[in-house]
Design a protein around this nucleic acid. Structure first.
Lengths: 206, 206
DNA sequence: TGTACATCAGTGAACGCGCGTTCACTGATGTAC
DNA sequence: TGTACATCAGTGAACGCGCGTTCACTGATGTAC
């Protein structure tokens, strides 16, 4: 049995809980991959784990709570994938690679496919920050934005405790939406149906 | 009673069919707007129209068929909204305006939220062409792409019977993904949670 | 070390609900002579 | 213009299925003395 670092200091019962929670999440991710968010079903997960449906309510308050956890994990994982890529092109490629490797998780972060699920609670917005920080770190400042926008950008940076200039913040944000445009269209098969190679398009954008 | 131009020459029964189909689609769109594609339900639509569920099978082969119709209509409607905007900035603004006014339809076109629904059948890909044509018409050619990409771009244009240069095709495609990135993030509330004004971002991109 | 007790994981039954789709059928609308 | 017939819209019952969540309960695991 291999214990993760967090598990070492835990009482046996807490350790068990952590492991079961992990297994539930893994099963949920498999379902997410196979049929999108609507396919993530408490009962189906329980079935997959060989357990009765209500048992899962010991580990997650309800279905939304589980989806929230999956989202938080995905933000963390994306930030990990971006961290340490090095320069801007490598970071951009890492972003695309992460999204392509797990499109269902990417969609969970950046597309509302779950009606009634608020993807922008304080907790979730905070979790998304880390990835933005990586972009900010690798991007060279661009042109100076007009005053109205500059004010919003610096306010945004200040709120997060970063002292970034408006041109740098703008460059990061712009890089983000450009890559997102490219990647999200790729994930949904739009380049494939046009027979264009998205990798070439990305290199061109960089 | 006001008849649409297509309805004038129709036999009464055909006319009735066309009208009911239209009412079904309208109800479906309302549900799409309220809860996304999963909320579009044959039974719920029938209920809304004051009719029994199976009745709708006279008008649509099944649920997927109905969703396909909604998608085709949306492509048409988007192309209409772009046509005649004039220059590039106006077209870009029209694109954003359309997406903001009916985000549920925009998502239907550019995000796979429906598991098991193939958004890239020949019919649907063909329907998406018109919007692309408008972009091609208003965009000035950009830099010349590398040979591999240029070949794909000209092949793509040729397949659609357009004689466009690779630089022009690239410029159109790039414009598309940049606006899509901006707009799709806006629709899903990402700029709002950062307190940035997407209208300013778009003007800056143009 | 042994015993009494508290905590907690998991069960099975139940609630109330919704879904897409088929089928045999009724009744109205249109068509042909 | 009237009659016989074909077409088609819509019904209601049924099939088989799934869902999230609650509740009272059993049995095992851990804790305190």
């Amino acid at each position: 049995v291999v214990l993760s670092t967090e598990e070492v200091g835990m009482a046996p019962r807490d350790r068990y809980r952590a492991q079961v929670r992990e297994e539930v999440k893994q099963a949920a991710l498999r379902q997410l991959a196979s049929g999108g968010p609507p396919a993530v079903s408490v009962n189906a997960i329980a079935r997959e784990l060989g357990v009765s449906g209500p048992a899962l309510y010991r580990y997650f308050a309800n279905r939304d709570d589980l989806l929230t956890e999956l989202t938080l994990d995905a933000y963390d994982d994306l930030a990990d994938a971006l961290t340490g890529a090095g320069d801007l092109p490598a970071t951009a490629r890492a972003y695309r690679a992460w999204a392509l490797a797990q499109p269902h998780r990417y969609r969970l972060l950046f597309a509302v496919a779950v009606p009634g699920f608020d993807a922008h609670t304080e907790r979730l917005v905070a979790a998304s920050q880390r990835s933005m920080d990586v972009l900010l770190a690798v991007v060279p400042p661009g042109p100076r934005p007009p005053p109205a926008l500059a004010a919003q950008l610096t306010a945004w940076a200040a709120r997060r405790g970063l002292d970034t200039t408006a041109p740098a913040a703008l460059a990061a944000v712009r890089l983000w939406w450009r890559i997102h445009g490219l990647v999200s269209l790729e994930i949904d098969g739009n380049w494939a149906s046009m027979d264009l190679d998205p990798a070439l398009l990305l290199e061109l954008e960089l």
